[in-house]
Design a protein around this nucleic acid. Structure first.
Length: 816
DNA sequence: ATAGGGTTAG
């Protein structure tokens, strides 16, 4: 804690003669400068204690009637500038004009302006200083000012001006020039070479700071060759400082070369904690969390000072690795070790703690930490917002969002994607509109989330509008937006559009491939999906567990049993990806649909883990298709045991009882629910509703029968609410900002169709599926089963053609 | 010179 400003005068004025004053002042100013240098970042706003002392001293100087000579004046200006009181510095400077004979004061001011982000002011002063008053240091101030602000080109121009004006650059000049050059994006290796040459010519290459800047410059170039040169510069250095090691380690880390970084680190002489921190954060960025933790442990044990940077990286490692107990231990360590954390630079620590606690489900702890943060910044707000969203507390998140002082771009994004993930896609769209109305600028990720919302809603027109906006904003080459568009078009049934997006995307990543394969699979194009998968492999893209989930699902949709098996094996053997529960579930679903329910059963028994809900769901659906009711009920009951409070299970179980007409069991389910305090009605009501339903396949909102469909949906929606159901996304009536209501169902409705289609339908009941989409895999399957169930032909119109379903087959020849 | 918050695929 710096001393508070003295209330009594610093100096007893009467005891010194004027000459001695001058010396005393100079000495005091010197002391203040040293104190100022030590007290770097301070949390306090307003005048700092040091500034108060400076003002008091200045007041003494004025009161003494002593007219400070140039060097004292310069020092005063410098101190005011460094203490952050630029207006005072400027006043003194201007009062000393118009005859500044040296550049010292101007340099101080240029430095201060640049440091406080007022580059134009610095430049203005720079330009107004006449040539005779300039010196090398003066140019250096301007150059390093630009360099620190990341303005590479202006810095180089000042450097040229300096040479033209006939000044000799020194090591400081080159340190500035090189770090300015490093800020230029797309710098060519030849440029680095040219700068390197002029460094050598000037004879400053032995200065450590110049070599350091040179190394940083070569690393920034991001080519393997320049990294080698950086290494050569490093090897030739006779003397190295902390910055040298940091630059090397960070250089390798940024290139993703963690091994080289570690080698440099191991060669390091000295115990610089910044380098340790850099190494830890390097490990975290590479996903090597355990190595990061090990390094932290070692750092602690050999007594390298830990600081805010260390804690932030280590906590982030714990959070990313899911090692919450470890994270809590580090938190405890921070508290135990006393609060020697700088309140300004500890902010990232607090922010990552918020993330850590919310990630492990302790949102209340996260909230407490958040509330205790004194000076919350946008990251703090976004962290707690994300915490609530990820815990599914979307209402709390919204409440926080609404009281946020400055809604950062990311906050909008988190909120919109939060809505979409919590089944409130429509709210997401509304929020996007609000964002635009409030003049906030969406980034490509925001577009990605909003477009995903359209996909969930099946709101093709809105999706197209967003597509157009995206191009206007210049985001058309963004991968995230492209992937979202592709998926949106596929979910709206426009596979061709999706494919076009896929074809024109400049940088396909594994998500793009997965999305396109899924799009084809969902629409029943199993063969094409497989073909695309092979292309993906041929293109050297490594498939992940989602790719295999997708390809298995595609095989499932297309009834490609053998292919499904082949890919399941290949996943394990060729790619070393061990199948998870979902992969097994796909395969079991596939077998079940093909009537090979016993094989599916064997597969379950051979699984390396206990079957979970998705497995039993797959068994259940297989049993429903092929009438193996004993196994089906077994599956339903397993499901029931696993998630006893999951309403869906009650629905599922009573559905299957109802389907085989065992109404007494349906009643038992009702009673069970009552006993267990589940408020909702069991699922048989759904069936009662569904069996009387006339639903149409609709591609076009202007379809003559669409009004009837709307009416039905409204009745169904009301009825469901009366029964205590909250209609899920499949049946929500979407009012999508247009004048006329657009009732859109997402691809999930197909699953519903499968469910309904397989029920025993009373004579005369017709179940057709409402869609404004084209017929795709599951939907097709469902209708084929329906045609078998009702024993007569069902004709549905697709966008392109009519499909005639009869006796479980379709005129288009597609096997389900 | 080292640190913290985000998206899209199943």
């Amino acid at each position: 804690m710096p001393p508070s400003p003295p209330s009594t005068p610093l100096l007893p004025l009467q005891s010194f003669d004027i000459a001695k004053f001058a010396n005393r002042f100079a000495a005091h100013l010197q002391l203040l400068a040293a104190a100022l240098h030590k007290a770097s970042a301070s949390a306090a706003t307003g005048p700092t204690p040091l500034l108060c002392r400076l003002r008091a001293l200045h007041a003494h100087i004025l009161a003494s009637g002593f007219k400070p000579r140039a060097h004292i004046l310069n020092r005063l200006i410098d101190l005011y500038a460094k203490a952050g009181d630029l207006p005072s510095a400027r006043r003194l400077f201007d009062a000393a004009s118009p005859a500044p004979t040296d550049a010292v004061a101007a340099t101080s001011l240029v430095n201060a302006y640049a440091a406080s982000g007022h580059l134009p002011l610095a430049r203005c002063l720079f330009d107004r200083t006449p040539l005779p008053a300039r010196d090398t240091v003066f140019y250096n101030a301007m150059i390093s000012g630009y360099a620190r602000a990341g303005n590479g080109l202006p810095a180089l121009l000042v450097f040229c001006e300096m040479l033209q004006d006939g000044f000799r650059p020194d090591d400081y000049t080159f340190t500035g020039v090189l770090s300015a050059a490093a800020a230029i994006i797309g710098l060519e290796p030849t440029h680095c070479g040219q700068l390197h040459c002029s460094v050598v010519k000037s004879g400053t290459e032995h200065a450590i700071s110049v070599s350091n800047a040179l190394i940083a410059l070569y690393f920034k170039c991001d080519s393997p060759d320049t990294a080698v040169i950086a290494r050569e510069v490093f090897d030739r250095m006779v003397e190295r400082d902390e910055l040298t090691w940091t630059t090397m380690v960070v250089g390798y880390v940024r290139r993703g070369d963690i091994t080289e970084a570690r080698q440099v680190f191991d060669d390091m002489e000295g115990r610089f904690n910044v380098v340790w921190n850099a190494m830890i954060s390097g490990y975290v960025h590479c996903g090597l969390f355990l190595e990061a933790l090990e390094m932290f442990r070692k750092m602690k044990s050999i007594g390298i000072p830990l600081d805010e940077f260390t804690y932030t990286s280590v906590l982030s490692a714990c959070e990313s690795a899911g090692l919450f107990n470890h994270g809590k231990a580090v938190h405890a360590h921070i508290i135990r070790s006393g609060s020697d954390l700088n309140p300004v630079s500890a902010l990232p620590v607090e922010n990552v703690l918020v993330t850590l606690y919310s990630k492990c489900g302790k949102i209340d702890v996260a909230k407490r930490i958040f509330d205790d943060i004194e000076r919350k910044d946008p990251v703090s707000w976004n962290s707690i917002l994300t915490g609530y969203v990820n815990c599914g507390h979307i209402d709390d998140a919204l409440a926080i969002f609404n009281v946020m002082p400055h809604k950062h771009e990311l906050a909008w994004l988190v909120m919109i994607s939060g809505f979409v993930h919590n089944g409130l896609a429509e709210e997401g769209l509304k929020l996007f509109s609000r964002m635009r109305a409030e003049g906030a600028k969406p980034c490509d990720y925001t577009y990605a989330s909003t477009i995903a919302a359209c996909g969930e809603l099946g709101a093709l027109k809105h999706g197209q509008q967003l597509h157009a906006q995206l191009i206007q904003f210049g985001y058309e080459s963004s991968n995230s937006a492209g992937n979202a568009l592709l998926t949106m078009y596929a979910k709206c049934g426009a596979v061709e559009e999706a494919h076009i997006v896929f074809l024109v995307m400049p940088n396909l990543d594994s998500i793009s491939w997965n999305a396109m394969i899924a799009a084809l699979g969902h629409h029943g194009h199993g063969r094409e999906a497989i073909e695309l998968f092979d292309q993906m492999i041929g293109g050297g893209i490594f498939p992940d567990h989602i790719t295999f989930l997708t390809i298995l699902s595609a095989c499932n949709h297309a009834g490609l049993v053998d292919e499904g098996f082949r890919y399941f094996e290949s996943m394990k053997n060729d790619y070393g990806i061990s199948p998870g529960e979902d992969h097994y579930a796909q395969l079991i679903d596939l077998l079940g649909r093909a009537g090979r329910i016993r094989e599916a059963w064997d597969m379950i028994k051979s699984m390396p883990f206990e079957p979970g809900p998705s497995i039993w769901e797959a068994v259940l659906s297989g049993c429903r298709i092929h009438g193996d009711m004993d196994l089906g009920i077994h599956a339903a009951e397993q499901l029931f045991k696993m998630i006893p409070r999951h309403d869906g299970t009650y629905v599922l179980l009573s559905n299957i009882y109802a389907a085989i007409g065992r109404w007494e069991n349906v009643a038992r389910v009702r009673k069970l629910m009552k006993d267990r305090g589940v408020k909702k009605e069991p699922g048989c009501s759904w069936i009662e509703v569904a069996n009387k339903v006339h639903v149409f396949l609709v591609n076009d909102a202007r379809h003559p029968e669409v009004q009837e469909v709307y009416k039905f949906l409204e009745i169904l929606g009301v009825k469901m609410r009366k029964l205590g159901y909250v209609p899920d996304t499949k049946f929500v009536l979407h009012d999508v900002e247009s004048e006329k209501k657009e009732y859109a169902l997402s691809t999930h409705s197909e699953k519903l169709a499968v469910g309904y289609g397989l029920l025993k339908l009373p004579a005369g009941a017709t179940v057709i599926v409402l869609k404004n989409l084209r017929i795709c895999g599951d939907c097709h399957t469902a209708i084929m089963f329906m045609s078998k169930a009702v024993g007569r032909e069902i004709v549905v119109r697709d966008v392109k053609r009519f499909h005639h379903f009869k006796n479980g087959e379709c005129s288009c020849g597609n096997y389900w």
